[in-house]
């Protein structure tokens, strides 16, 4: 029997994924709390451990790991951007160990080490975001925000913004196919021509976006939606009422909170999480 799937912001997820046993608010707070870890912790070993933990979470939540493959070029590009940025603009100190000299540019170990530290931090952060987008639906975000007492207008706008990204990608592909059918293929053109002809994509894309916003506005009015600013007025939270916080939610939230507090306290009162504790600094 085929597995029933549920559409997420970044793909599909089996309906029996354990992640769905958590309240959308817990999943939303997961993004907010766990995203703070790589921002606080610079120690590469801990961020590598975090990345491995995220991969395990992908597996446990039954997220298709192929979703990460879609971003492999982004990971590679990110590495080169960071490496180049730190190599050429990382500064120079006479204490630095020079690995290679490329004309006036000195490639130093210390700068490369910084590049690696930042890159590993970003990998952890990106994996958290991919996991979030792979397991959340627009509905979950609206419910999560409403559970956090965020005004409906803001919650709905957040959901609409996320959806509009997807719709714009669909529109862009449609325009690209239409342009190709009329013998305009940007991929086959040199870079300067690509830039010049990009307007051919942008103009219809913007026109479509304006038309879509007009249609959404008419549809909202026709369904009796009244813009009441940040006050939700008499609106009923029917969808929100279908979700209940469970002991598991409280346990996960407590675990994440305690871990975050622990990291903050350790980084303030000890040097265990300092970069000097890293193996990279012993090389």
């Amino acid at each position: 029997m085929p597995t029933k799937m549920r559409r997420s912001l970044l793909g599909y997820l089996p309906v029996d994924s354990p992640i769905f046993s958590l309240h959308p608010m817990t999943r939303l707070l997961f993004l907010l709390i766990v995203s703070a870890y790589p921002m606080i912790v610079r120690l590469p070993e801990l961020n590598v451990a975090g990345s491995i933990f995220m991969l395990a979470l992908f597996r446990v939540s039954k997220v298709d790991l192929r979703v990460i493959k879609n971003y492999k070029m982004a990971f590679v590009n990110l590495f080169f951007v960071i490496a180049i940025a730190y190599t050429f603009f990382g500064g120079y100190n006479p204490d630095y160990r020079v690995l290679i000299e490329l004309g006036p540019v000195k490639v130093c170990w210390e700068n490369l080490r910084w590049a690696m530290v930042v890159y590993i931090q970003l990998i952890f952060a990106i994996l958290i975001m991919i996991f979030f987008l792979s397991t959340m639906r627009e509905r979950d975000i609206v419910v999560g925000l409403r559970a956090l007492r965020v005004p409906f207008v803001l919650a709905y706008m957040a959901g609409l913004a996320l959806r509009s990204i997807g719709l714009s990608i669909i529109d862009f592909n449609t325009i690209r196919e239409a342009e190709k059918a009329r013998a305009l293929d940007l991929q086959a053109l040199p870079f300067s021509e690509k830039v010049k002809k990009f307007g051919m994509y942008i103009v219809p894309l913007v026109a479509l976006a304006i038309r879509r916003s007009d249609e959404v506005s008419n549809a909202l009015d026709s369904r009796g939606f009244r813009f009441t600013g940040l006050k939700s007025g008499k609106r009923t939270d029917y969808i929100l009422s279908k979700y209940r916080m469970t002991k598991l939610d409280y346990a996960v939230l407590a675990g994440m909170g305690v871990f975050l507090a622990g990291i903050i306290l350790i980084s303030i009162y000890t040097d265990w999480l300092a970069l000097e504790s890293s193996l990279l600094y012993r090389i």
């Binding site: 559409r7 639906r137 627009e138 509905r139 959901g159 959806r163 879509r212 249609e215 959404v216 008419n218 549809a219 909202l220 026709s222 369904r223 009796g224 939606f225 009244r226 007025g233 008499k234 609106r235 009923t236 939270d237 029917y238 969808i239 009422s241």
Partner: peptide, 24 residues
């Protein structure tokens, strides 16, 4: 497609009813 306001059928059908503040 131009009139859909939500990403699930359930939300779509109840959207206007929620706006009216009807009991659950």
């Amino acid at each position: 497609e131009s009139q859909f306001l939500s990403m699930t059928v359930e939300e779509e059908v109840v959207f206007a009813l929620e706006n009216r503040g009807l009991p659950r």
